[in-house]
Design a protein around this nucleic acid. Structure first.
Lengths: 244, 244
DNA sequence: CGAGCCGTTGAGGGGATTCAAGCTCAGTGG
DNA sequence: CCACTGAGCTTGAATCCCCTCAACGGCTCG
């Protein structure tokens, strides 16, 4: 079984795209995970698997995309500039997530999409998904499921990450980040300024709280942007914040 | 042309549901607005048009619905209880909006849906929409459009209504409410406690700001829960808040 | 090695909360 | 009819949390 880090183009050229998809590490969570062998056989075009560096944009708000993406690894943030003129991050997406579905409607992107970490993705052209949706009914249903998931994620973000005292918001964010982390090499931690844009805090406040959590042993720095999170203490801290 | 206030059941009995839908006041914005005469003719079942009183629930979070609704008049709020235990309102829906699409996926509702004002709605059973989606391809596309609209609305909510100083948040909410208002009899204004649940403020703070806006002439009370909004001054106030 | 970005920490001020007290108004029952 | 009640709104005073302003240190990179 190929690791998720093996680029698809290194896999035997005799294998069609269908074979590559069948072997994909995030296949179960991916859009095409609903396709059976027969459905996959219709994938007669090659799917590009572009990589994005940290802070590289996948697209910009207001533009109309030509493709959507399934994330294979890494984290992407959705950000916009509010009417008041300040930058706000409104959602995060991680491995297995489908992003940019508005492309299917030829609707412009509502936000910038920017890689937070190095990102590997599968590029799904609009035309391909269009075709597939016509021939494979399950794909339509799966698309709807994805859309619903986006709604749920956005509402969750609004309800859990934008309310209450600063400390609780940071703890909730940490909780989210742990879910999105690739697991092996710790949890990615945003720059303080980006944490501020997510939680509506100043960089100073974000910094103070992160420092406090480190002193309390909830966090442990692994590298510049990665930490080890003590799940036990995180839960305890979240529960304590809720009670008080 | 029947007004939106004429109950559907009062229309001539010889007219099938198709005729009723064709004459609907919110037809252009409604889900079935994409159907042509031929498509409408497939509507051989009667569509119920239930009314909900203010503060009456359309459904509760966690339950799986049997139908979705197109709102004909009134405003509905989506609320939930956060992990921290406090009530949060995460979205509003108004005339023309389709709500409860998760029913189509047999997914449980993520939030309570509660009428803010008296609400008139069209009840669209899951099975009906299912059928129609199969026979009329435009319906599928329209459903996707609705889902995308929900995502955009949720992100807008998160970015504009949950960030910045309290006064700006209230002004942004007012802006939203004006869009949702039926137009003729003023703009609906939530109870202070509900404003707090929307904007993450205390009822006292919400009250203070509303009082100030009334003194400044931005608002003018019409009745207990309805106000006239001076669009001019509202825009001025919003712009001033952005600059300062 | 100096420049610049990012993170950290401190001191002081301001805006929202907390606590508390009246107020209006609709509904109820004597 | 009208006091009584309770829910929602308003306003005040004190407190506290977060922001603002400021300085400093570590790190990378030209």
């Amino acid at each position: 079984m190929p690791s998720r880090d093996v680029p698809l183009y290194l896999q035997p050229a005799t294998h069609p795209q269908a074979r590559a998809c069948a072997a994909c590490a995030v296949r179960e969570q991916a859009l095409f995970g609903v396709l059976d062998a027969d459905g996959l056989s219709r994938l007669h075009v090659a799917i590009a698997t572009p990589a994005f560096a940290a802070d590289e944009a996948l697209w910009q708000a207001g533009t109309v995309g030509m493709a959507m993406y399934t994330l294979r690894s890494g984290i992407v943030r959705f950000e916009r500039v509010t009417a008041a003129g300040d930058r706000r991050i409104v959602r995060l997406a991680g491995p297995g997530h489908l992003i940019g579905q508005e492309t299917l409607l030829s609707a412009p992107h509502a936000d910038d999409a920017v890689a937070c970490t190095p990102v590997q993705a599968c590029r799904l052209p609009r035309t391909l998904v269009d075709e597939l949706a016509r021939s494979e009914p399950q794909v339509v249903r799966e698309l709807m499921r994805r859309w619903q998931a986006a709604v749920v994620a956005a509402e969750q973000w609004a309800s859990e990450l934008t309310a209450g005292p600063a400390r609780r918001r940071v703890l909730s964010l940490l909780h989210q980040l742990v879910q999105l982390s690739d697991g092996d090499d710790g949890t990615w931690l945003p720059r303080r300024e980006d944490m501020g844009a997510m939680l509506d805090l100043t960089t100073e406040t974000a910094s103070r709280i992160v420092s406090a959590l480190r002193r309390e042993g909830v966090l442990q720095a692994l590298s510049k942007q990665h930490v080890r999170v003590d799940a036990q203490r995180l839960d305890a801290a979240r529960h304590a914040a809720d009670a008080g």
